[in-house]
């Protein structure tokens, strides 16, 4: 997706420039190149050059294939709700809800059961009962294994 790459590349250029400036401003302990800022500055300069290369290479690519109109169409198609992206949005929202809403609300174990049941139903192509059953079973297995074998506390 050439157009997307060019856009992101330009964003990178701005981003790395900002980080570079932050790096230059880091304090000196004797000499700049042995100080905290040295390595970030080197990295950001390299990243700026590489991002520039990326953007230019893709622009050249674009001109050769004379695909600008094509690419704009593709880009807007990217953002329209296709079946695939719907699934991605669902699983992302579900995961975020699991971590930031369900777990504080219900405790990790129950939240896990809920998360598994719902996502298995949405994506697993099995009926509700099997979803719940698998969800509960896996949660129990995980809980036992981590708590008693590995001695790890569950997230809060």
């Amino acid at each position: 997706m050439l157009l997307l790459e060019i856009i992101v590349g330009i964003i990178f250029l701005i981003f790395f420039l900002y980080l570079l400036i932050l790096g230059i401003e880091m304090p000196e302990y004797g000499q700049f190149w042995v100080s905290p800022g040295a390595f970030p500055v080197i990295l950001n300069i390299l990243l700026l050059l590489l991002s520039l290369w990326w953007v230019i290479a893709q622009i050249i690519n674009l001109r050769e294939k004379k695909e600008l109109k094509n690419q704009v169409v593709k880009l807007s198609a990217l953002f329209s709700a296709k079946e695939e992206w719907k699934r991605l949005v669902f699983i992302s929202v579900l995961t975020l809800a699991y971590i930031y809403w369900l777990t504080p609300l219900l405790g990790f174990s129950i939240a896990t059961v809920v998360f598994l049941t719902i996502s298995l139903k949405l994506f697993g192509k099995i009926n509700w009962l099997k979803c719940t059953g698998v969800g509960v079973l896996i949660t129990i297995l995980i809980y036992l294994a981590f708590r008693y074998v590995l001695n790890l506390p569950m997230p809060t």
């Binding site: 699983i91 998360f115 598994l116």
Partner: peptide, 12 residues
Amino acid sequence: NIGIIMPVVIVL
């Protein structure tokens, strides 16, 4: 089915 494995991967 990958739709069953992946949610478990997410939990792990």
